[in-house]
């Protein structure tokens, strides 16, 4: 039994000018455009229909996100360099830049985690009508920190953020800088006085929901890219030697994917953080 020979794996089709892999990848990216396009459309629809929508730069960590943008764009550059290494038949160069790409993508994920984490530890308590909480009479909500063991108790010891009454979406990083020391005194809130108690996770509001869904899905794409790149780095040497043309095609495809993921972030960043 002989394996069927499939054409245009490593040489381009004379009419389309593309290898199978590259055409397939472009098609895959087209479907990805539809996926993220649907999410961006949802973002627009929900934002237009919302009563209030926080300003991204006010509640999210723009410096960290900017740093992440730089990291991701750099990783796109190193990805190109890795491909160049392939084309030049320079295994060392390929390995160096591929490792760098993977390292940068990991840095991106670490920064993302640093950005995510405090949001899950920061709470907002939406007060019931006529709730009597000393110092917060007439407020709609209090933001601050609490002991998560208290969550299912009848009352909650709450350490509010700096004494700003009420508005949701307090400045997040002012909170980091103070490292908790700037908190006003702990207050005790009866559970019955709270309509809804939530951290600044996805369930806080549609803004945070979309923020976590869209950046999370983007993060999954990063993870997928890391897996592919890692595979080429660790197990690609054999093909690099036996079939360099096909290998550099594959790296090129992985690179196209990587640039696309980068591009999605370049749309996400202004949409969520700056608009």
């Amino acid at each position: 039994m002989s394996a069927p020979v499939i054409r245009y794996i490593d040489e381009p089709h004379p009419i389309t000018g593309l290898t199978n892999g590259k055409l397939g990848l472009w098609l895959f990216l087209a479907s990805e455009v539809m996926l993220f396009g649907a999410l961006f459309s949802s973002y627009i629809l929900l934002r237009v229909g919302a009563d209030s929508w926080p300003d991204g730069w006010d509640v999210l960590n723009v410096p960290l996100a900017t740093l992440n943008t730089v990291v991701l764009i750099s990783s796109s550059v190193t990805m190109v360099m890795a491909w160049v290494g392939c084309r030049l038949n320079n295994l060392g160069k390929f390995r160096f830049y591929m490792s760098l790409t993977i390292a940068l993508s990991l840095v991106f994920l670490v920064i993302k985690t640093i950005e995510y984490k405090p949001k899950f530890e920061h709470y907002e308590a939406f007060l019931a009508d006529g709730a009597l909480v000393k110092g917060y009479e007439g407020s709609e909500s209090i933001t601050g920190h609490l002991d998560e063991n208290d969550l299912d108790k009848d009352y909650i010891l709450f350490s509010p953020d700096a004494v700003q009454h009420g508005t949701s979406g307090d400045d997040e990083h002012s909170d980091h800088e103070k490292g908790g020391e700037g908190h006003a005194e702990q207050i005790r809130i009866n559970r019955l006085d709270i309509d809804r108690l939530t951290n600044f996770g996805p369930k806080h509001s549609n803004f945070y929901g979309l923020y976590f869904t869209m950046t999370g899905l983007h993060g999954l794409h990063i993870v997928g890219g890391i897996a592919v790149n890692l595979y080429f780095l660790l197990f690609g040497t054999g093909m690099f030697r036996s079939n360099p043309a096909q290998f550099s095609n594959r790296i090129e495809c992985a690179g196209l994917y990587w640039h696309f993921v980068d591009l999605v972030w370049i749309f996400l960043f202004p949409t969520i953080y700056l608009l």
Binding site: S31, E32, G37, A38, L39
Partner: peptide, 10 residues
């Protein structure tokens, strides 16, 4: 290819 991704988003 093009119609399924929006459902995936949904």
């Amino acid at each position: 290819l093009l119609a399924f991704p929006p459902l995936e988003a949904a």
